[in-house]
Simulated assay, not measured.
Amino acid sequence: MNEEFFRHIFKKQQEADAVPSNKEISRWALELIRLLYPEQSKRTLSSLEELKNEFNKLEIELYKMMEATKACIHCDNAKLARDFFEQVPEIYRLLNTDIKAIFDGDPAAKSEFEVIRAYPGFYAISFYRLAHSLYKLGIPLLPRIFTEYAHSKTGIDIHPAAQIDEYFHIDHGTGIVIGETCKIGKNVKMYQGVTLGALSVHKSMADTKRHPTIGDRVVVYSGATILGGETIIGNDSTIGGNVWITKSIPAGSYVYNTAEVKISSDNKSGK
């Protein structure tokens, strides 16, 4: 190995040292979520001024993370950080609708406190809502780190570019995949193992709509696979478990498998 190779690797290591780790970046998002929902931690603040100072500190940290990760080389990152925090009240409103959707839609939920503290669906949605707001501001890397962190904790994979309306309910959630160009309407409920994916993953399709559109008040049961950018699930539809859909479904539809299950009382194996 020649000297030029070592210099190249050493330069990359120096540049990497200036960038916060994914764990540090994700901690920032978690701190913001915990400020909005102190139910997630024991931490309490003593005054309104202390709360404002915490938000100001997080804004400064966001600016520093954007600078370090070269989030937008030709942008005013300080302004982008301010713009993001201007959106925080709307993020909070959306998250409150998600909490209500989960609590109202799950008979096992005993309180909204339980949803906030214990539900992986709300955890993943929280990181997604923050990530999506940053993504809309043109910041590419941080949103992906946020949603991948939530993915590692919950098994729920939501691309930060996906468009998800209010009152979103993820029940159980493990194994859910929501692709980059998905559009999901209001009051949608989704169970574990659902894939909203693309029919093709060819790189040439990067700038096209590759993932489905889910209408309002749709329920998608576990194991369902819905593929394709032109696939639209109409409002008020129910998608049964383990179905495979690549074409649009009209509003008010009920889609289900017709596999026959036989039960016999004659157990010849003797077990």
Rank of each mutant, 00 (worst) to 15 (best):
I139M: 10
S200D: 12
Y135I: 00
G223T: 07
F6W: 09
K268R: 13
I73H: 10
T195A: 06
P140S: 06
T238R: 13
R27G: 01
G223I: 06
M190I: 15
I60H: 08
P20C: 06
I232Q: 08
I214L: 07
Q163M: 10
Q13M: 14
K189M: 13
A124G: 12
E148K: 13
V218K: 00
P38M: 07
F113S: 08
R217F: 13
H74V: 11
Q163E: 12
H202I: 03
V194A: 10
K209R: 15
I116T: 11
N53K: 15
N257S: 15
N53R: 15
Y123S: 00
L130Q: 14
Y128H: 13
S41C: 13
L142G: 08
G193P: 10
E180T: 05
M205D: 15
I33V: 13
N235I: 04
G228I: 06
K57R: 14
E50S: 08
E39T: 14
K262I: 12
Y63C: 10
I139L: 15
V115C: 06
T174V: 13
K100F: 06
T69R: 09
G241I: 03
H211D: 05
K209M: 04
L80A: 07
M66N: 08
L45C: 01
K136C: 11
L137E: 11
H172V: 10
D17I: 13
M66H: 03
S237A: 13
V255F: 00
L35C: 07
S133V: 01
Y63L: 06
K189Q: 12
D106H: 09
T195Y: 03
E15M: 06
K268G: 04
K271W: 00
S264N: 12
V201A: 11
K11M: 09
E39L: 08
R82A: 06
D76F: 09
R129W: 05
Y256W: 02
Y92C: 02
M205N: 14
A206S: 13
H151P: 14
G193T: 04
R129S: 08
E86R: 08
D106Y: 11
N53D: 11
G240S: 04
R129Y: 06
D106C: 05
E50W: 10
I249Q: 06
G121V: 03
V115H: 11
L95R: 12
V218W: 01
I145N: 03
H159D: 08
G138E: 13
I25D: 02
N267Y: 01
S21P: 03
K189P: 00
E112T: 15
G138Q: 10
A29M: 10
N22L: 01
Y37R: 02
G252M: 07
S133G: 14
I164C: 07
G228D: 04
A251D: 11
I9Y: 07
F127T: 04
T195Q: 02
S204K: 15
E39D: 13
